[in-house]
Structures are given as structure tokens and as C-alpha cells.
Design a protein around this nucleic acid. Structure first.
Length: 222
DNA sequence: AATCAGTTCAACCGCTATGGA
DNA sequence: GTCCATAGCGGTTGAACTGAT
């Protein structure tokens, strides 16, 4: 026997939503509201399960959704909330009107985790990745060594992402915003790393390979 | 131009929480 | 208190996209 599925899956459509489906769902909800997600697809004339409709509405169609890249302040707040709440994305999302838990979760997994690792912080515990120093080994030199051993591999992983490159043409506004954001992030990282007092960061700054993302920065402005 | 590798994010899956009978 | 249906959540997947070679 076992538990019945939330919906009859035979004949139901899966995968990306079409514009027509979006319109049907949006019109139905705006006109009728949401009483029962299980009934929404059949009443709206959709070959989707209620669960899928709910997700589509929450993550994409809701009129109050805020679109666009996360700001530096939002990222900082996500990190702060995550340190207190852990992976409770819906609780975290509740602090960001217009943002979805899925959006925040994705952003955490793809960007913030890397940013934190790069800053020498464990994304899980929010504590420095530095290995505990024993009493007789507390010199600055050994700290630098520990930092390089633990953090440097992530520098390779973190190399300024592809979206820092400025591009022109339609649909590239987000990328240019990302570039500016990454520059801001860079200064924030410098500030954060300043706490470690490490020469290794200067080496990274001086490494032209890692800054390639900015090489054509000037080309993008007339 | 073709291919490969890495990244992003929409969507799905499976589980838990909740509320009503 | 138990059972069941539904809503909601978090982890995971995979298609699409982008940049590098």
C-alpha cells in the first residue's frame, strides 16, 4: 500500500514551464486566490501537479518578487542569519521581502559559500578555517603558513567569476551590475582579510591572472 | 567552429509539519 | 490519540548557458 502520492502523476507535464502555462496559473490565482493547491491545476486547466504549481508561483510568478542580483548588504545579512539559523532557508527568506527561499539557497550554494571560503571562513560553522594553534607555535609566520595551506586552494576555485567581465548588448545589464558588485565585494574582502594581517592576500592582488576579469573594464565605457 | 568544463538556477524529490476528521 | 491529506521545506538534479581551449 504505502502513502498515496500528492497527485496522480500519469499524464502530467514536467520540466520547464511555458509562457502559456505561466499565464494560466497567474490568471487563475489572481482571479481566484489559492484555496487548495491540489485543485489549482485542474481548475486552471494545467497538466501539472499542485506541488509544481505552488513552486512555480512562489519562486517565479508571485507579483511581489524582487528580481535582480543580491546586494552586498543582502549577502552580509544572509551570512549573519545563516550563522544563527543554519540551513533554514525559509526562515532566512522571511527577512527578505520579495526573495524566495530557493533563490537564497541557490545564491548561498553558488556564491556565498565560495566567498566565505575565500575569506577563510567555514560556511558551515562561520568560524575561521585556520587550524588550531598550539601554545608554543603562536608566531605570525606560522599563522600565515596555516592560512596559505588552508585557504589558497580556494583562491583558485574563487578566481573572479566569469560574470565580472563587462559585456554590452541586450540582457547584459545584470552582468554589468555583477561586475560592479564584485568590485564592491573585492573591497569588502580586502577589509575582511585585513583582520588576518596576511601577506598572501597581497600576492593574490598582485597576480594578474586572477584579476583578468577586470582587464577590459575600461572598454565598456565610452 | 567545435568541443569541453564549469556555473547557475529552475524544478523535482522525498521527507516532515500541520491541521482536520 | 490516530490516521490521512495537504502544505511546506531543504537537498539534489539536470538543462541551459558561458567562457576557455
Amino acid at each position: 500500500m504505502g502513502r498515496q502520492p500528492c497527485c496522480e502523476k500519469v499524464g502530467l507535464k514536467r520540466g520547464p514551464w511555458t509562457m502559456e502555462e505561466d499565464n494560466k496559473l497567474m490568471n487563475f490565482i489572481l482571479n481566484n486566490g489559492i484555496q487548495c493547491w491540489r485543485l489549482v491545476p485542474q481548475l486552471a486547466g494545467l497538466m501539472r501537479c499542485g506541488k509544481s504549481c505552488r513552486l512555480r508561483w512562489i519562486n517565479y510568478l508571485r507579483p511581489d518578487l524582487k528580481r535582480g542580483a543580491f546586494t552586498e548588504a543582502e549577502e552580509d545579512m544572509i551570512i549573519e542569519l545563516h550563522s544563527r539559523l543554519g540551513n533554514r532557508w525559509s526562515k532566512i527568506a522571511a527577512h527578505f521581502p520579495g526573495r524566495t527561499d530557493n533563490e537564497i539557497k541557490n545564491h548561498w550554494n553558488t556564491r556565498i559559500k565560495k566567498k566565505m571560503k575565500f575569506m577563510g571562513l567555514d560556511p558551515l560553522t562561520h568560524k575561521p578555517l585556520l587550524v588550531e594553534q598550539n601554545d608554543q607555535d603562536s608566531s605570525g609566520e606560522s599563522q600565515k603558513l596555516e592560512f596559505q595551506q588552508n585557504v589558497s586552494p580556494d583562491l583558485k576555485e574563487y578566481q573572479i567569476p566569469q560574470n565580472t567581465q563587462l559585456v554590452s548588448g541586450p540582457n547584459h545589464q545584470d552582468k554589468n551590475e555583477s561586475c560592479i558588485k564584485n568590485m564592491e565585494m573585492g573591497s569588502s574582502i580586502i577589509e575582511s582579510l585585513g583582520n588576518f594581517g596576511l601577506d598572501s592576500f597581497q600576492n593574490w592582488v598582485d597576480n594578474p591572472f586572477l584579476w583578468d576579469g577586470f582587464s577590459n573594464f575600461g572598454d565598456s565605457f565610452p
